[in-house]
Amino acid sequence: MADKILKKIYVKVWRQNNPSEKGRFETYEVENVSQGSSFLEMIDILNDQLIREGKDPIAFDHDCREGICGMCSMYINGHAHGPDSEITTCQLHMRRFEDGETITVEPWRAGAFPVIKDLIVDRTAFDKIQQAGGYVSVNTGGVPDGNTIPISQVDAEEAMDAAACIGCGACVATCKNSSAMLFVAAKVSQFAKLPQGKVEAKRRAKAMVAKMDELGFGGCTNTGACELACPKNISISHIARLNREYLKAKFSD
């Protein structure tokens, strides 16, 4: 079946030339958009149109366009990564929109993620949290043969689930407190369940939480909005683990 064509849609998008400019919404008309095209392809079409008109194209982050790099940050119609759950913006299709609809597209909003230009925000805060402790620096030897280090299936799965986090920031963008707890919880959890990660567990939890607080993210109030927004379905049960790891570390000081 051929894809339906949306005759005309309106894209209301945030335009901001640089971090210090105030910024504003602009509404653009886009005609004849196939419902089979992805959301980012629709933005590409719009940008092509803007370039032809001699205007500045909309700046947006994207890279893999297959849901693994976490770059494509867009807050679409009040939802991080658009109306579908468990996908990134690049996996969103125009099937989800109606002819004549006005689609509101905003950058992630958080003090810790300042806007660089249009829809691009600066997510180096995540890198800084990761650099504060999201690694293993003890010698774990060479690549082990399969099953030489006994790790239960349950623990391995739990660690893998946490490791699925792509650092997209949808959790921060969605949380009413702009809290980075789901991200930090995922990054702490992926090590906490494995023997290689246990050696530095205390230092890691303390350092990453301290960095998160320092960078101006809000605190977690367990609303659970983050896990609904997360394209990788990271569960807030990892946040309980982060709390546990952090409190254990603090109380044994």
């Binding site: 807050y75 905003e106 909003r109 003090g111 407190n177 702009s178 809290s179 809000g218 109030t221």
Partner: peptide, 10 residues
């Protein structure tokens, strides 16, 4: 927590 998001969503 309110201070962590100086500008909200439209």
């Amino acid at each position: 927590n309110m201070k962590a998001r100086p500008k909200g969503y439209q």
